[in-house]
């Protein structure tokens, strides 16, 4: 089937833009996961739950404050809340387990995921929740002569901003550089008199902050519900793997592949659109088994 004639060029471009804006949220979440994987070597399955907590927390902030102020506040408070939760989890639980093998860590974080899931059920209930975007992000903007949701445009702007901030943190700040070094050789960094445990904690909390931010950002675009952690964590893992473990730019590349293939899928075979990203992952991994960009592992 000739896509161009069936849809028209501008519709294709628009569909791709939707894919890109979805990719931005995926990027924010998987960049956090990638940071944790790279620095701590923990395959954190609970990352998806933190994203879910972020979305629910954003809902609560919106309930309490309300209006546009509530939305903007939720973008700051919800990730901070998630960061706090992850800080406690790291100090109380994770910091004793870093030497365990990956399989154990993975199952442990899966246990955490179940715990977080039940806690969310306990505090927020099982009903669907929704958050409305502020008026300035509602409605649509005309792009290529077609309406494009303003909120997606907002996501397209905020994604690069977060990416830039993360890049500044990892490559320009002292702690970012230390964490980079610790991901290569944690013994050596410890031998230099640096408290590696706290470096790990910082990286973990920042990674989880990003998960919470992703949750707060996605809240206005979809129903907030239990189980939203299950699909996102798998997608985030696959994105991190095709990008190269621990590589933040890899997370960007992976997220873009994921988002764009999904929107191509929507155009070609709407019913099977969710299959396309998985297919892309399989193809990428068959050709580049270690991911597209350099992995820190």
């Amino acid at each position: 089937m000739d896509i161009a004639s069936a849809f028209g060029m501008s519709e294709i471009a628009l569909q791709l833009l939707v894919g890109l804006s979805r990719a931005m949220i995926l990027f924010i979440i998987s960049a956090g996961l990638s940071l944790i994987l790279g620095v701590l070597r923990v395959p954190n399955v609970a990352h998806g739950s933190l994203y879910m907590i972020g979305a629910f927390a954003a809902y609560s902030v919106n309930q309490i404050v309300g209006g546009a102020a509530g939305f903007w506040l939720s973008l700051i408070l919800a990730p901070l809340f998630v960061a706090l939760v992850s800080f406690v989890a790291e100090r109380v639980l994770f910091c004793h387990l870093y030497e365990r093998e990956h399989l154990m860590l993975l199952l442990f974080t899966f246990a955490l995921m179940l715990i977080f899931g039940d806690l969310v059920k306990f505090f927020w209930g099982v009903d669907y929740k929704s958050v409305t975007a502020p008026d300035m992000l509602k409605g649509s903007v005309m792009i290529f002569g077609l309406p494009f949701p303003a909120y997606n445009l907002f996501l397209l702007i905020i994604g690069p901003v977060v990416g830039f901030a993360l890049w500044l943190f990892v490559s320009k700040t002292r702690i970012g550089k230390i964490s980079k070094a610790a991901s290569v050789d944690r013994m050596m960094v410890g031998a230099l008199g640096i408290n590696v445990s706290w470096v790990f904690c910082t990286a973990f909390v920042i990674g989880c902050f990003l998960a919470g931010l992703g949750g707060a950002l996605i809240a206005p675009t979809m129903g907030i519900t239990l189980g939203m952690d299950h699909t996102i964590i798998m997608e985030a893992f696959l994105i991190v793997v095709i990008g190269g473990l621990g590589n933040i730019w890899g997370a960007l590349v992976g997220a873009l592949i994921f988002g764009v293939t999904q929107s191509i899928g929507v155009m070609l075979l709407p019913q099977f659109a969710i299959i396309f990203p998985y297919l892309a992952v399989v193809i990428v991994l068959m050709i580049w088994p270690k991911g597209l960009l350099k992995s820190v592992w």
Partner: peptide, 16 residues
């Protein structure tokens, strides 16, 4: 981990 991930993506393909 790469073995695990490609298996998960293939499996997810079948699930989808």
């Amino acid at each position: 981990l790469y073995f695990a991930m490609i298996q998960i993506s293939l499996g997810s393909l079948l699930w989808a």
